[in-house]
Amino acid sequence: MKLTVGGSLKTVFRPWVEGLENIPDEGPAILASNHLSFSDSFFLPAVLDRKVTFIAKAEYFTSPGVKGKLTAAFFKGVGQLPVDRSGARGAGEAAIKSGIDVIERGELFGIYPEGTRSPDGRLYRGKPGGLARVALATGAPVIPVAMIDTEKIQPPGKVVPKLMRPGIRIGKPLDFSRYQGMEGDRFILRSVTDEVMYEIMKLSGQEYVDIYATAAKRQIADAAKKKAELEKKAEQEKKAEQEKKKAEQEKAGQGAPRGKTGRDKAA
């Protein structure tokens, strides 16, 4: 499945890649990437010879019907790992455990430190829970990755992708073994995460925003809601003004003196 999907993606979209030499031929590593599009989890594995395991919503694997089974088979084939996200804390712990299991098998584990897709193409603050804890618990090197232009191929909400070339830049491995066993220290977790995000920023060239992407999405949603409310209010006021003018015109027409009839003119 990976060879089929990966080969098709490379043939159709022809992604360009820099830094492939930074991916080890064997042994565990964590690939920490920015997240611009739903397709990121497909393009990165497509350009690598080794399997990369990402975390995916459990719903992708449990949907009913023929479509659900095909979707589940596709995600399993491209190396996606189901995690139940019904509870925020439980989901985080499950993702960390899954990541550690992948690393202990000597494989590549892919993770998006931002926690969700960027709402506007900018790079947001990394969450310290997953990436740093897996890195410090296992001692595995962290390889920063930058996806380029994938949001233009498949923007949020779009099903049919646009044909254009995305890019992938792979940075040099970062060694955090000096902090191994200190995954309980929140200051260390923050420091490790920020260092990785800085490297991703350099690779991607994105503008960095020091808030979480989830908070940015709420702000954007709130702004859109407020704009819609203001537009609705303005439309209602415009309609009320038009109705008022119409009523005034009708009233003025009713109060005007009637013209003389033909008999009056003859008299």
Rank of each mutant, 00 (worst) to 15 (best):
M1P: 13
K2C: 01
T4Y: 14
S8F: 15
V12C: 04
F13Q: 09
E21M: 08
I23D: 10
P24H: 09
D25P: 02
D25V: 07
I30H: 13
A32M: 09
A32L: 06
H35T: 04
D40V: 00
S41L: 00
F42S: 03
F43D: 09
A46C: 02
R50M: 11
T53C: 05
S63C: 04
L70F: 10
T71F: 03
K76V: 03
D84W: 03
D84L: 05
A94L: 03
D101Q: 11
D101M: 10
Y112C: 12
E114R: 11
R122F: 04
L123F: 04
Y124P: 02
G126N: 06
G129D: 15
G130H: 07
L131P: 08
A132Y: 02
R133S: 05
G139I: 00
A140L: 05
A140K: 07
A140F: 04
P141M: 03
V142Y: 05
I143Y: 04
V145W: 02
V145I: 15
A146N: 07
A146Q: 06
T150A: 07
I153T: 04
Q154D: 00
G157D: 10
K158S: 12
V159N: 09
K162T: 14
L163R: 14
M164D: 11
P166E: 14
G167A: 11
I168A: 05
I170T: 11
G171F: 01
G171W: 00
S177R: 15
S177T: 14
R178Q: 02
R178G: 03
Y179I: 01
Q180P: 01
M182G: 00
D185G: 02
L189T: 01
R190W: 06
R190M: 04
T193C: 13
D194Q: 13
Y198A: 13
M201K: 15
M201G: 02
K202N: 15
S204Y: 09
S204K: 01
G205P: 07
D210H: 10
I211W: 01
T214W: 11
A215C: 09
K217C: 07
A221L: 11
D222V: 06
K226L: 04
K226G: 00
A228L: 08
E229W: 08
K232M: 10
K232G: 01
K233Q: 14
E235L: 12
Q236I: 06
Q236A: 15
K238M: 05
E241Y: 04
Q242D: 09
K244G: 08
E248K: 11
K251Y: 12
A252C: 02
G253A: 14
Q254K: 15
G255C: 05
G255W: 11
G255L: 13
R258F: 07
K260F: 14
R263W: 06
A266K: 15
